[in-house]
Amino acid sequence: MSKKRKIKDFLGYVMIYLCAGFSVLLLAAIIVYVFAKGAKSVNLSFLTSVTSVLKGTVGIAGNIVNTIMIVVMTMLITIPFGVGAAIYLNEYAKPGKLVRLIEFATETLSGIPSIIFGLFGMMFFGQTLGLGYSVLTGALTLFLMVLPLITRNTQEALKTVREDYRQGALGLGAGKWYTIRTILIPSAMPGIITGVILAVGRIVGESAALLFTAGSAAVLPKGLSGLFSKLFQSGGTMTVELYLAATSEGDFDTAFGIAVVLLILVLLINLGTKMLAAKFDVTRINR
């Protein structure tokens, strides 16, 4: 090898190592910095009380409840539709115009940024349907956002179920729907759950789509009836509270406290999907 070539090769390696190192260092720096800044704000009362000047407490309990409610409501709406759509696309549909249109729409939907979902949710669910700023408006908006995610993951999972299973069930006299219900959905369950966890992760981290749909209230609902009426009231998630704390309130202690909680959640969700993928390696079981 010529000397010039050697230098060029060396430079190539240096650049590649630098770029790859950048991502890792970046992640490490983000985690260390957020924990260093925010760990001191996070304690039991931060997680279980609501910020109140009267009582002198600082806490995000209201935002945690709102986040959980929005996650649960969104998933309750999205799972049936997403799984249903995937079943249609994979088991019933014959290739043709409708399927191409549905797939085009799914791709398009997954490419729309969350701020547009937020605008549409505000106009359609909030104003046209009269739901205003509420947890329900937020959940319906996020339904549109995570629908492609659930549909895709379920579809992928259904594709990996072996053809023998379908033939076997049909051969034994089971109807198509019976086969789907008892054989295909259980076999595809790990894939469906992975999709659900990914969707939960997106919802927990979402803010732009929620600012103008679910609003920013941080009150803690009282009792079960309070929880129900909360559906129709404004409720800010942790991310929205972080945004407001950092920008309009200038309360960086709370902002970093929330950032710590969010980072821990994100880490757990990431770990969860990894473990699930390792435990239920769908391709391995079916091969």
């Binding site: 991502s23 992640l27 983000i30 972080l242 970093f256 950032a259 990431n270």
Partner: peptide, 15 residues
């Protein structure tokens, strides 16, 4: 690490 970077909420990047 890259997967985790993708999962970090945008408000944290903003902060």
């Amino acid at each position: 690490a890259v997967e985790l970077l993708a999962a970090i909420p945008s408000v944290i990047y903003g902060l």
